[in-house]
Write a protein that binds this DNA or RNA. Structure first.
Length: 421
RNA sequence: GGGGGAGUGUCCCGAGCGGCAAAGGGGGCGGACUGUAAAUCCGCUGGCUGACGCCUUCGUAGGUUCGAGUCCUACCUCCCCCA
């Protein structure tokens, strides 16, 4: 289906990663003959990356897998500037202080997906972690204007969709936001200077910004840069990826447990299974074709594979298998899975008896006693798989199962174990 | 600088004659049906309480009133028009 010669573009195209590419033939030829250095920028506004960032991360991964060199660019500088609207000074400073922490959390994720060089095992395409704070923070305004600013035509910038739409709708566009695209273009050039980076990838919304970088590269260095964007991924029902009741689906294990992460993928809609297998796992395409062709009830097998493979990439194979095993015993055998979320209670407390309301709030299944009451009224609460009908019910020593725990359930999907200590 | 408009259930959007725990939607959660899917239907979607009830919520701070999301004053933030 794809007419590319290079592994790199063939893999991306075959798996559905490509939305737009600039100069595809030239990039294809380059990918065949040389090691390309390419980058993607990531904001560091949060202590972890979430599922929404997974697609770009996979892009970098395939880049490296097909022999090229990825750069993960942290927006340490651009995040400091941030979105100026609705934020006061103090909050912005706080974010600046936390950026290093955020960077640390994010770096851990990248090491799961990319191979960074380590001493003796260094290779030509080892991944690079860069931070644009390194060059943006020390920019001299006048120098910057003279070197970079003179290459940007206001006339042309006004024609960009991102700007034009705002102006047409007579919405505010701050000078700062207007400059953001210039900073991003400059990042591209700086990475070219430092590492010979000639390709920037990103989501489809980044196209305009990337193209600006390409122009700047031509003007400053007479260099040929490339852009490659990925499609915006939504579920078949149109919802954005990565949001659940509990909030964003984070990649760090201490924010979303491997078990919950596995569950997120397990609950994928039928229509998305094939597409997600291609994007978020590294299974071979023929294997994916087989799984995606499953119909009806059988497609659940494909969802389990998706969940386990996707979880293995982020949390490791062992954690993924454990999550899968827990899901199997919990959902298919009605048993108790070892890696279900567990909350500890003291023996003394248990002896005295714990009210259902307190227990479920403590277990994190509900936010308030009232919420538990409502759930009981809705027939949603179970203790050790026995339906609870009164909010006065209490949990005591007698409820401890042979396995040494008490199983609390809200609905059919959400389970927490209470463990006496 | 002058004039006009807006900020509402802390997930989002959004109605709201001075009696309001506050319409409606989206989203979310739960139930039924299923396959841990989608679609559909039903219920729930401030806190405490067994319950009467009490407490906290409509940008911030005051005020008028038996009673304020609603009226008045000042302030903050955002948007529009004029300069």
């Amino acid at each position: 289906m794809s007419a590319y010669k290079s592994d790199f573009l063939n893999v991306l195209a075959g798996r559905g990663f490509i939305h737009q590419v600039s100069e595809p033939e030239a990039l294809d030829a380059l990918a065949c003959s040389a090691t390309i250095t390419a980058y993607i920028g990531f904001d560091c506004t949060a202590p972890s990356l979430h599922v929404g960032s997974l697609l770009p991360i996979m892009l970098l991964r395939w880049l490296q897998q097909t022999g090229h060199r990825p750069i993960a660019l942290m927006g340490g500088g651009t995040t400091r500037v941030g979105d100026p609207s609705g934020k006061d000074e103090s909050r912005r400073l706080l974010a600046a202080a936390a950026i290093n922490e955020n960077l640390k959390g994010m770096r851990a994720i990248f090491t799961r997906f990319l191979r960074f060089g380590e001493g003796a095992h260094a290779a030509a395409n080892d991944a690079i972690m860069a931070d644009n704070a390194d060059w943006l923070n020390t920019l001299n305004y006048i120098d910057f204007l003279r070197e970079v600013g003179r290459h940007f035509s206001i006339n042309r910038m006004l024609a960009f969709d991102s700007v034009k739409l705002r102006l047409e709708r007579q919405q505010e566009l701050s000078f700062l936001e207007f400059n953001y695209m210039i900073l991003q273009a400059y990042d591209f050039v700086e990475l070219y200077r430092r590492y010979g980076c000639v390709l920037q990838m990103g989501g489809s919304d980044q196209w305009g910004n990337i193209v600006n970088g390409i122009d700047l590269g031509r003007r400053l260095h007479n260099a040929q840069f490339f852009a490659l964007t990925s499609p915006l991924i939504t579920t078949s029902s149109g919802a954005k990826m990565g949001k659940t009741a509990a909030g964003a689906v984070w990649l760090n294990a201490d924010m979303v447990s491997p078990y919950d992460y596995w569950q997120y993928w397990r609950n994928t809609e039928d229509a998305d299974v094939g597409r997600f297998l291609k994007l978020f796992t590294v299974l071979p395409l023929d294997e994916i074709a087989r799984l995606a062709a499953l119909k009806g009830e059988e497609i659940n097998e494909a969802k389990k594979v998706l969940a386990t493979e996707a979880t293995a990439l982020v949390h490791g194979r062992a954690a993924a298998d454990e999550a899968a095993a827990t899901a199997r015993t919990t959902f298919e055998e009605g048993g108790l899975g070892a890696s279900l979320p567990t909350v500890q209670v003291s023996q003394a407390e248990l002896k005295a008896g714990i009210g259902v309301l307190t227990a479920f709030v403590k277990a994190g299944l509900a936010a308030s006693n009232g919420e538990v009451r409502r759930a009981i009224a809705n027939n949603a609460i179970m203790i050790n798989d026995v339906r609870v009908t009164s909010d006065k019910a209490a949990i005591g020593e007698a409820d401890v199962t042979p396995g040494g725990v008490i199983k609390l359930s809200l609905g059919r999907k959400r389970h927490v174990l209470l463990k006496p200590v």
